[in-house]
Nucleic acid binder design. Structure first.
Length: 598
RNA sequence: UGGGAUAUGGUGUAAUGGUAACACUACAGAUUCUGGUCCUGUCAUUCCAGGUUCGAAUCCUGGUAUCCCAACCA
């Protein structure tokens, strides 16, 4: 029932502007009515939550409108890329629940790109420039000032051709020459000022080996790859808006090239007969989160400097980090859905992400008992040596049509005995009216067990409570008639003889400022330092807090890694990959919402 | 007068000339064997100034603010 309702709500939700555009293009029969997208990560780092937003768009829109989405590794810069990242990227996308049509690589197109570049030279659309990068930068002008032409701009085609071959020979020093598109050095769009198409790298590529020494640049690769692959909608983030016109220009050129050379283009069953048979670029706002640093470059620094324990550190905004932290794929997708896609440069509140996690984990997580700051409670009238096995519910949100909790297969047992651990914060020697947990002279319910009456406590000379005493009402066992009595406070507990010591890792934001990216940038500018030195002033020294004094019930200690848990009355946790049944380790995902009273 | 983009509650999104809606947060309350969940209520005249119109968040004019672009990165 509830599911049907929520599905209806989802369907009623209006399309975002890109989905609306796609729907319209399909209706108009653009690209012969085909829909194909791609997700194009550069394999130079791990995917982060910002990529999750792009993934949800690229794969999601294809899924929604019956198209296909390829996974394309944008591997045009062998200096920075590694196969380690390829595997991690694939794993993360699959974990999020998406399936690609084909796995392709920009490097698959290197030969086509080379042939196309040669065609550009022959058609007077490109030339080899032999100036230094400084000279080229100077000629480029500034955003407010036109650039000037390179002295090599009008060199003979044959000369460029020969030099271009030389660039790829392995005998030319990197930086000695580049291939540039001949467009317009006075264009107000900086990307039109004779953009670089190819540069010499002289290094092997992890996929193509020693075949290439000159490699194509992003702008000369992306739209062309889209075209060669048959992509119809090339969806990216807003910072590529200035590239849009160049994207279109190169696509126009490569269409001419394909037509002239009779190149059969995969995924274009209609060939060049259809004028609009071409990829188009669409841009949406990328994800910015407050108290979070997103850029791969900076995340790499954090891992290299040991600020965090690797890419999957639960404090990292990487998908693997968030996974280890205890987020479900559904909670990430729910969050992405809640922030939407627009063209507004937003700074999203992490609270939205936490709210999505709570909403999903509330439905999904197994409730277990864990005491994080233990103090001993002795039930003085409970027989010494007696142990009861009590049945407790795994997930109270699992309900049948009538709204009753489903018990079948939804319970586990927990031992109850005379000596228990309870949370130190659940007892107060002197309670005010707002406090309704355990205090002398008051009844408290031990969740899933009995109602007890606190009779006293023992404290050391400093007033630190060492033991608490109570009596229990044997007729008040959970599930029996005698339990149906109003008791204001309910607390959780653990039998001292039947629980397992556990390590619980608690996390806070890595950053102390709301917008670390801007803060770091400004600090770099003002103090002339870079990298980790500019980050340190904004790092939260308390972002990781390890608690080794906690206890959990046996059932929780035996759960497999990444299990979604709720420590009753505390928060959501998950089983860390470091965990073993003998030494269970848990990560705090996000706390429960807390009422004001505390 | 470089080019391009954007502006709706604390945050994010919706409203496509016709009663500013939704989610989250915050606050208040009810229910409760989790101070959770579920439920109820409270919180904006849409960046500013003019104009067009019976009627403007939406159209026009002029401002203001913010973001992107000057890597042989993607």
């Amino acid at each position: 029932m509830a599911e049907n309702n929520s599905n209806e709500v989802v369907e009623k939700k209006s399309l975002n502007f890109i989905e609306a555009k796609v729907e319209n293009d399909l209706k108009e029969g653009k690209n012969g009515g085909r829909l194909q997208t791609r997700f194009p990560p550069e394999p130079n780092g791990y995917l982060h939550i910002g990529h999750a937003k792009a993934i949800a768009m690229d794969f999601g829109v294809a899924e929604k409108f019956g198209g296909v989405c390829n996974l394309r590794m944008d591997d045009t810069n062998p200096q920075k890329e590694d196969t380690e990242y390829v595997e991690a990227i694939k794993r993360d996308i699959e974990w999020l629940g998406f399936k690609w049509g084909k796995l392709v690589y920009a490097s698959d197109y290197f030969q086509n790109l080379w042939d196309f570049a040669v065609w550009c030279i022959k058609n007077n659309k490109a030339y080899v420039d032999e100036q230094t990068s400084e000279e080229i930068a100077a000629q480029k002008g500034t955003p407010t000032q036109a650039g000037t032409n390179s002295p090599y701009r009008d060199r003979p085609v044959e000369e460029s051709l020969a030099l271009f071959n030389e660039m790829n020979s392995g005998n030319m020093e990197p930086g000695k020459a580049i291939l540039r598109a001949k467009i317009d050095m006075t264009s107000p769009n900086m990307h039109f000022r004779d953009p670089i198409m190819y540069r010499v790298l002289n290094m092997p590529h992890w996929r193509t080996g020693n075949t290439w020494n000159a490699y194509p640049m992003y702008d000369f690769t992306h739209g062309q790859s889209d075209y060669l692959e048959g992509v119809t909608h090339s969806i990216c983030t807003l910072e590529f808006v200035p590239h849009h016109e160049l994207y279109d220009l190169f696509v126009t050129w490569i269409k001419e090239w394909a037509k002239e050379t009779g190149k059969v283009v995969e995924g274009h069953p209609h060939g060049e007969d259809i004028e609009d048979n071409r990829p188009r670029q669409f841009e949406f706002n990328k994800l910015n989160l407050n108290y979070t640093l997103m850029s791969k470059r900076n995340l790499l620094i954090l891992t290299k400097e040991g600020v965090v324990n690797g890419w999957d550190d639960p404090r990292m905004p990487t998908i693997c980090g968030i996974r280890r932290r205890g987020y479900s794929p559904e909670s990430i997708l729910k969050f992405i859905d809640s922030i939407g896609y627009t063209t507004f440069d937003a700074l999203n509140d992490v609270k939205l992400m936490e709210a999505a996690a709570r909403a999903d984990l509330n439905e999904r997580s197994t409730r277990v008992s864990a005491v994080l700051d233990p103090v001993k409670l002795i039930i003085t009238n409970y027989p010494e040596g007696q142990v009861e096995e009590l049945e407790v519910v795994n997930n109270p949100e699992l309900k049948d049509a009538e709204g009753n909790v489903i018990m079948e297969g939804n319970t586990h047992t927990i031992e109850f005995s005379r000596e228990l651990w309870i949370e130190r914060a659940d007892f107060k020697a002197e309670a005010d009216k707002k406090f309704f947990r355990m205090t002398p002279g008051k009844e408290t319910r031990l969740k899933g067990a009995y109602i007890v009456d606190c009779t006293g406590f023992k404290a050391d000379e400093n007033g630190n409570v060492e033991e608490i005493y109570c009596t229990y009402d044997p007729t008040s066992k959970a599930g029996t008639e005698g339990a149906n009595r109003k008791v204001k406070g309910t607390i959780h507990w653990l039998s001292t003889a039947h629980c397992v010591p556990a390590e619980v890792r608690n996390y806070e934001c890595l950053w102390t400022c709301e917008n670390p990216r801007d803060a770091i940038k400004q600090y770099e500018k003002e103090n002339g330092v870079r990298g980790i030195d500019a980050m340190r002033p904004f790092l939260n020294p308390n972002s990781l807090n390890i608690n080794k004094n906690a206890f959990v019930e046996k059932y929780a200690a035996a759960l497999p890694e990444l299990s979604y848990l709720q420590f009753t009355r505390t928060g959501y946790f998950n089983v860390d990959p470091d965990s073993t049944p003998e030494h269970p380790v848990f990560n705090s995902t996000v706390g429960l919402k807390e009422a004001k009273g505390k």
